[in-house]
């Protein structure tokens, strides 16, 4: 019986010495390894807080979206995030929150999203909306880049959760930003030359002082001569007394699904209300051709009403 005690003690002592020695060496080399890891990330972090000294914060995130969390002493926290968007290779970007909760920086590291759509998530238009927000706001999606921006917002939410927990900021994490702000811009005058959209009135129904025109107009596909596209058909109601547009609606959609059909929202068509032949109406960014075909249809209706 003595034998077993001797054996067990001996092995236990050897393992104890082993454990102790390992801890000593680990305490010696761990800081070196950690500082080396930060060195590698440094030049990315400099993009946001130039000149700050960074320490790595323990990454307790289990969503797998946060690759690394770095604290810029006295300035804020930088999160290195990764998610998959439209393309199969995941994109990586940095989001930073200042200590007061405002967004300190938003920087793309690598992404192979389709440019013109997904890649717009890192162009100034979306970047400015993000830079204006704080860690307790809900981040909006980006119309025309829904797949990518959903991935971006999902990753930022993970970073927000960590940051707010760290700073003890209460926030409503499942608040969803209101319908994605329809990015509209560069207005087109109703009297401009839209002849190649070939807007033709196909039907006219007078109803008291209002007439409803059914107008067909070319869209993105037909303009570029691509097959299996058809015209867009709009119903424009014109008020005959002051020749203004009472309302406009799209009854048939013939352009690229997922892109052109974004204009088919009341929010956009309300912009036409009260427009006369001399006023101008915005186009939806990312769906310029379809917007122009709507404007060409409105112009044809106004011309037809004006012709009376």
């Amino acid at each position: 019986m003595k034998k077993i005690i001797y054996l067990t003690c001996f092995l236990a002592i050897v393992c104890a010495i082993a454990g102790g020695a390992l801890t000593v060496v680990n305490d010696m080399t761990a800081p070196v390894i950690e500082s080396m890891a930060i060195e590698a990330e440094k030049e990315n972090l400099e993009l946001i807080y130039p000149g700050a000294d960074f320490t790595e914060v323990e990454n307790t995130d289990d969503t797998g979206l946060i690759l690394g969390i770095y604290e810029a002493a006295g300035q804020g926290y930088v999160y290195k995030l990764q998610n998959t968007g439209y393309s199969s290779t995941p994109f990586q970007f940095l989001i930073a929150f200042n200590l007061d909760g405002t967004v300190g920086g938003y920087q793309m590291l690598q992404s192979s999203e389709t440019n013109g759509f997904g890649a717009r998530a890192w162009e100034d238009e979306y970047t400015n909306t993000i830079l204006g927000l704080t860690s307790s706001d809900a981040f909006p999606l980006l119309s025309g880049a829904t797949v990518t921006s959903t991935g971006v917002v999902e990753a930022i939410d993970a970073a927000k959760a960590h940051f707010n927990a760290l700073q003890g900021i209460e926030y409503d994490e499942n608040a969803v930003a209101e319908a994605p702000a329809l990015a509209t811009g560069n207005p087109v005058a109703l009297n401009s030359d839209l002849a190649d959209y070939n807007a033709t009135v196909t039907d006219e129904v007078a109803d008291g002082d209002k007439t409803t025109y059914t107008v067909t107009a070319y869209g993105f596909g037909l303009l570029n001569g691509q097959s299996d596209y058809s015209e867009n058909v709009f119903e424009v109601v014109v008020n005959n007394t002051d020749l203004t547009i009472d309302s406009i609606a799209m009854t048939q959609f013939g352009d690229t699904a997922g892109i052109g059909d974004k204009i088919d929202t009341p929010e956009y068509f309300d912009l036409f209300k009260g427009a006369t032949i001399d006023s101008s109406v915005d186009t939806v960014t990312g769906a310029t051709f379809t917007s122009n075909s709507a404007i060409a249809a409105a112009q044809a209706a106004l011309n037809a009403a004006g012709g009376q």
Binding site: A21, L22, V25, N26, T29, V32, I33, M36
Partner: peptide
């Protein structure tokens, strides 16, 4: 393990 840590560092 000690060699591994030294080489890693």
């Amino acid at each position: 393990t000690i060699v591994e840590m030294l080489i890693h560092a």
